[in-house]
């Protein structure tokens, strides 16, 4: 018989903006869970986060990391890139979603709160526009629309080798 460890109650959940190093260290155990749940083409494309490129973006002020912690334990995150759009260079900083994930048991309101927190940060940082996406198999369209986002693109992928 497998012993199941009882889940501790959800404690004090906080949202914060954190530096790459702190988030990356704590998020390492979560990345495989995130990857297994959401990444496509897992047979061909393995999880391999490029920490040095994230560092470069952070040094340029082009990285924003929002975290969700339960009594200090990392339970979710939202990573975005902040940079001008190549087509609209004079339009100011745009926020591009890189990735986000939340432990399943926290998907009872904390996902919405994380998005509200991230939008607040983007506004505080002076972003002009935000780009947000979700997987078709985990469709957040209704929530995004409630938050005021409008559907603008369909995004397709194809494995080439």
């Amino acid at each position: 018989m497998i012993a199941v460890e009882p889940q501790k109650a959800i404690g004090r959940v906080t949202f914060a903006t954190e530096p790459l190093a702190k988030w990356f260290f704590d998020a390492r155990p979560l990345f495989p869970l995130h990857y297994e749940e959401l990444a496509m083409n897992q047979d061909a494309i393995k999880l391999d986060l490029d920490a040095s490129r994230y560092e470069e973006l952070e040094e340029k002020g082009a990285l924003h990391i929002a975290t969700v912690r339960d009594n200090g334990e990392l339970v979710g995150y939202f990573v975005s890139f902040l940079m001008p759009h190549l087509h609209y260079a004079s339009a100011g900083t745009m926020a591009y979603t890189d990735m986000y994930w939340l432990k399943p048991r926290y998907r009872t309101g904390y996902g919405a709160k994380l998005l509200l927190y991230v939008e607040h940060c983007w506004r505080q940082l002076g972003c002009t526009k935000a780009y947000l996406s979700c997987k078709v198999k985990q469709d957040h369209t209704a929530m995004f629309k409630l938050l005021g986002f409008e559907l603008s693109d369909f995004f397709f992928v194809k494995l080439l080798r």
Partner: peptide
Amino acid sequence: RFASVVEDSLSFLQLMLDVREKFGPISNE
């Protein structure tokens, strides 16, 4: 705790937006 009675994040958000509409301002923050 809302987390113990709402179904998911969408339900929580919808509820809070309804509260805002009926009872007055509350910022996203």
